[in-house]
Design a binder for these strands. Sequence first.
DNA 1: ATAAAAATTTAGACTAGTCTAAAAAATAAT
DNA 2: ATTATTTTTTAGACTAGTCTAAATTTTTAT
Lengths: 227, 227
Amino acid sequence: MYICIKLISMNSFTEENYLKAIYKLLEKESVVTTNAIAEKMNTKAASVTDMLKKLADKKFINYQKYQGVSLTAKGEKIALNIIRKHRLWEMFLVEKLNFKWDEVHDVAEQLEHIDSDKLIAQIDHFLNFPKFDPHGDPIPDANGKFHIQKSQLLSELKKNSACIMTGVVDHSPAFLQYLDQAAIGLGDEIKIKDIVSFDKSLQISVNKKNSLFISNEVAKNILVIIK
Amino acid sequence: MYICIKLISMNSFTEENYLKAIYKLLEKESVVTTNAIAEKMNTKAASVTDMLKKLADKKFINYQKYQGVSLTAKGEKIALNIIRKHRLWEMFLVEKLNFKWDEVHDVAEQLEHIDSDKLIAQIDHFLNFPKFDPHGDPIPDANGKFHIQKSQLLSELKKNSACIMTGVVDHSPAFLQYLDQAAIGLGDEIKIKDIVSFDKSLQISVNKKNSLFISNEVAKNILVIIK
DNA sequence: ATAAAAATTTAGACTAGTCTAAAAAATAAT
DNA sequence: ATTATTTTTTAGACTAGTCTAAATTTTTAT
């Protein structure tokens, strides 16, 4: 007769952060190097090598000396779960606790490591199962799957098209603050009233009300899905 | 010309947990021993001694070999802040995320270490500045002060008195589940309709509606403030 | 194809926190 | 008042994660 206690090897915060960093680097480059990880983690290459060995031992990554790394299915699942938690917490902070877009990141970095399936399921429910975080990045489901309607740049749309804002390309505080001032936010309905041929700037309406001009440069940094 | 960055020595989770444990032991006993701390922290006396030296170096505790410990003002402030965060998170979990009284503790143990003044201020606000957590324990304010109207046992009140439930003495799941079944909860208005002379059991009404009998034993474990 | 440069890994050391086993101090018992 | 017992501390070792400096491998340039 055995008693089964919750052992389910709790991963350390550090391991989780490495896996997340590797996942994000893999989104941009097909091969992830030790130096790239070191830079992302604000640490030294030697420390990264040590950790890579440990993660490989645990079968979270595929690693051979000098050859870079990739995630195993197991490792990717953990990374996606951290990303899911991070984005749900960001959404919670903005939607329920009056945080600004540009204030949430550091706190979410801490909250993403809280270990409770029930907690994150309830937060998801409380937020009414959002598909995007406050920066427009997609939120994976509990199984690590994305349900994405592909976004495109506002600058690519034709005159008179209507769309919903889902995110931004430039995440800098400067840009996010500009959007706040212009009262353009996630989930807003944007309609292109006119495209100025001179400089490709757009005349748009937001939520069928306030009409304004935005530069092409701005439009290139706003992600939308067509309505 | 100096630049001042946020250094404000971030305390480790472990240090915070030791200070919290010491605070709680000081509530019951005037002198706190190494062994008592070891038991509370699920660790060994030798480990405690090591940590006590470190905490004393940082001026969080008063410590002399073999003589037990007490908290300095600095240490108490940190402990109270952790307790404040723990209790506010518990309240949040119960009030907003449908957690049961007896499910919140482990998650709150993690959340209490999240480091963000704005976050906890907003949670406090979101909960409408509660004075007690779901177990009826008082929540200190941001300065570590309690604003307590002294609670007393329901069993001590006279016939026809009305009161508000603020807490319990027995925190066991068995008792909390009984209260759930009986639909007696924090903040409920309890009126004593009758006291049975035979066994001192009480006939009460809860929130002016459901009337029921509770044993004297139960009444001895319910904390209330007189209305 | 081979030398130079860059990237990566190893070796060895450090801190935080923990442990066991042994020594020292305090308390209790005769 | 002098043992015996209990409590506490020290000594030394271990793990996770980090670092610097040196060695090794890969890549780039000639």
